[in-house]
Design a protein around this nucleic acid. Structure first.
Lengths: 162, 162
DNA sequence: ATAGATGCAAATATTTTGCCGCCAG
DNA sequence: CTGGCGGCAAAATATTTGCATCTAT
């Protein structure tokens, strides 16, 4: 692999933040988006996710529900959901290669806090973050519609082991 | 392309934040990393960057300086620099596909503020951001070594045009 | 009925690897 | 001199597209 000193990361488990079930479906319907069998399945996978998944994992789970779903459809559906701001695309600091991860998220943004050694990802909300976004919005004259923050470092457990 | 309503983004210009010249070179040498002809070129490209570049653009610029540089070497060198924390890898919210962008950055983190329509990216520093990282560090018990924030929205100019 | 979705196959794009000859220190 | 580095070619991944067919509304 690489000659870099960065640590290999294993798991990458997501500590889940639940959101009202059926949200994606409702959002799509309310926008008059055609709700096909395939979309239903992908949406179901996204809503029941207990961790961040890349396109490949989403495909696998979708196919467990409905074997006929293809990779192309997964990509297209993820793109659709992303386009409407219903899911976010993350890379989690590229801790595990160049994969892209997807998550459905509620109305409030959260920060992804990842350990660069064990790969555990924690989600963190903060009033300070909301203020920061307000400040950016004012100072840069931008109307923010997406915000993403990822921080990496050694978690307590990994520091203890080291 | 996609069926999503997201806007196409054009330029993606970076408003440059300068840093002391030769920093990367000094950092590498001080760590006893072999400084080859090729690395010199890639480092030069990274240090003189006036905008965020993807691997392909970096290759192009590098080859303007030295035709013999290969894509593989660019990837390997970027990986090396990234491993030592000397450059960051961004995706700028995937506003323009799945490219990854690289930037050499100074000691202080900055936030990337991107317009989802015109693609202009502004860099923004804030004391509030530093406080937020402190809060995360304390509350999550993590020793932060990388932090990345990207926000997207409509900039003033694009709102005016709309 | 029909605009819009899916499937298939193939094209693109992006990143990584094995191996060997070469060069910076 | 010598171990790390770069080049080449090819593999492995990842993502997108054209077009014919099917389906949700």
């Amino acid at each position: 692999m690489s000659s870099s000193p960065a640590h290999r990361v294993s798991a990458g488990e997501r500590i889940n933040v639940h959101e009202p079930a059926g949200r994606l479906q409702r959002e799509l319907k309310s926008r008059g988006i055609r709700f096909t069998r395939q979309r239903r399945v992908v949406v179901q996978v996204m809503e029941s996710a207990s961790r961040h998944m890349d396109a490949n994992e989403i495909l696998d789970l979708a196919q467990k529900i409905d074997k006929n779903i293809t990779r192309v459809t997964v990509y297209r559906t993820l793109d659709l959901l992303k386009g409407y701001g219903l899911i976010d695309e993350l890379d989690l600091l590229h801790l595990r290669g160049h994969r892209h991860y997807y998550e459905s998220h509620g109305p409030r943004d959260h920060i992804h806090v990842a350990c660069i050694r064990c790969g555990k990802v924690r989600e963190f909300e903060s009033e300070l973050y909301e203020e920061l976004k307000k400040q950016i919005s004012q100072d840069c004259g931008i109307e923010i519609s997406v915000a993403r923050t990822e921080v990496g470092g050694l978690c307590k457990d990994c520091r203890a082991k080291a």
